[in-house]
Design a protein around this nucleic acid. Structure first.
Lengths: 313, 313
DNA sequence: CTGAAAGCGCTTACAG
DNA sequence: CTGAAAGCGCTTACAG
């Protein structure tokens, strides 16, 4: 009766359901997982739960999963490829209902191979959030980051002029790369060549944005605006700008990407590109349900980022 | 050999271990949980994963658990008592290795009763982080928030004078309450009575701090400094202060509590009280190990918050 | 010290 | 349509 798999008379069904109600019967998840081969927990591997974009993603994914009766097991990658391998190994014996990897880090061949092995050998549904892995037949939910920064850098060039610097062309970050390409494309739209002195690598954290901008300012590099690779980077850069006696946006305009909670409450509030974690959670759930029913979900879902103009530009 | 429970000759042990190595044998977690009655996953229930203090806590708890071979299952309470009940019900059948509740919300009798039932009936180790439940025999890891705000408000009164306002005496929040008591105690230390016009309730979010401060400023309430109930609240209040043309700290000094990542990169950087999530993770693991071995861990662990002075005071 | 049996709570085929 | 058996992969007692 409970699995709905067998033909049962409605009289029996009613009796069974009454007993379920009376006894408060709940199928045992461990026993069910043991017998079925898969349970009701989904592993979510995030780049860094301390970053605003990942914590809000986690919140929405968890509540979306909960709505269809699934549990969320959380792993923090800490942007380490080595940790990914060890987590995949741990997870191997776990009879998961699904695995979602949410990181902007480019995965090396080995890591992708490990993911694919897991997906195929165990017929475990694997999904990617933020990183396009659809070429590897892994359904992916991504943002069009290149279009986003291209749009904002074009807007800055028109309203404030140049030069525009880019902070956060993070080595080994896919979204860092896409965001940088959008920046370069916007410059090309205006017939401007990329000046390597105005492109600064960094990690995704506040400190990285602060350090990059501080160094450039101290070295006397001239720029009218900054497009950052994340809101955290932008916030760090803003601090460096203010600390060295400059004003935002009059001396330097700043644009982030991600729209974390705090961005609207900075002084000045940060112009940025929004995200839609609730939509990501919904899409992931749809993909899980499709995989469960043996249907094919679209391999690539692309979400647009709304451009949010605030006083930092 | 693997459980270490039986007497085995060393020759056999070696042969078994060799086979384990060769075959890459890993005990099946579902089967083990089914037979033992408990598995290797710990449920962590957090107040709101989007708040910086909870995301860094989650990160450190996960990595501490991982070190002793445990998995973390995450639930977001969203500061809702109703959600707590439904999560406890879900979790009932899950054969958990432990359950940790991390929220600053005061739990009502019913919720505490549900927690205790779970702990006793199923002999499930239950722990509390941030909320003192040691009176109910639930081991608790807490910060001395009252001492923290008492110290900072005393420091402000000496360096900047008064009046000092308090934002975030959150209805139904234990830490909001403790932090408010510290504020009131510091005023008493200076022979000052609490002025209800200077105490503003709010939730823990940026918007709440912004709204409270904005309203007070527009109504012409005079104050020289603000002690906030969290860093997020402080950030919201800072925005309202700057927006209405005042300067921090010259017109209004601001102190937060929690030391979230962004606080050091604000303009001006926020004076606040630190946290030690790594220590919380370690302590939780010790408590879990003690419970597993039938030992008694201390029922109450109190962590001190370091006072971090930055330019907002 | 070794080996085999019982049983955790389910689901899935199968006999009636 | 109903009922009972087999088996998922372990751990724990028990017989030898």
């Amino acid at each position: 009766v409970l699995t709905g798999a067998a033909a049962v008379s409605s009289a029996t069904r009613v009796k069974v359901m009454a007993a379920v109600e009376e006894l408060g019967f709940r199928p045992d998840p461990s026993a069910r997982a043991l017998r079925r081969g898969y349970g009701d927990t989904v592993a979510l591997l995030v780049g860094d739960i301390e970053q605003g974009v990942y914590s809000s993603l986690t919140k929405h994914v968890q509540s979306a999963l909960e709505r269809i009766g699934l549990e969320l097991m959380l792993y923090n990658l800490g942007h380490s490829a080595q940790r990914l391998e060890s987590i995949l190994e741990r997870v191997e014996s776990m009879r998961l209902a699904g695995l979602a990897i949410a990181t902007s880090d480019v995965l090396d061949r080995q890591a992708i191979a490990a993911l694919l092995r897991r997906a195929n050998e165990q017929s475990l549904p694997v999904f990617s959030i933020g990183l396009a892995l659809d070429e590897h037949a892994i359904p992916s939910i991504i943002y069009d980051d290149e279009a986003a920064t291209r749009r904002s850098v074009n807007a800055i060039l028109q309203s404030h002029g140049g030069p525009v610097a880019y902070v956060g062309r993070i080595a080994g970050s896919a979204s860092g790369g896409a965001r940088y390409r959008g920046y370069a494309a916007a410059l090309a739209d205006h017939g401007i060549a990329v000046d390597e002195a105005l492109v600064w690598d960094s990690s995704f954290r506040h400190r990285a944005g602060y350090d990059s901008a501080k160094r450039a300012l101290e070295e006397g590099v001239a720029f009218r605006a900054i497009q950052a690779g994340s809101d955290e980077i932008a916030i760090g850069a803003m601090r460096a700008i203010v600390e060295t006696g400059r004003t935002i946006p009059d001396d330097v305009a700043v644009v982030g990407i991600g729209d974390i909670d705090v961005s609207a409450y900075l002084s000045p509030p940060l112009t940025t590109h929004g995200a839609d974690p609730a939509q990501v959670g919904e899409t992931l759930v749809e993909m899980l349900l499709a995989a469960r029913n043996g249907e094919t979900a679209p391999l690539r879902t692309v979400l647009e980022r709304p451009f949010i103009r605030r006083a930092s530009t």
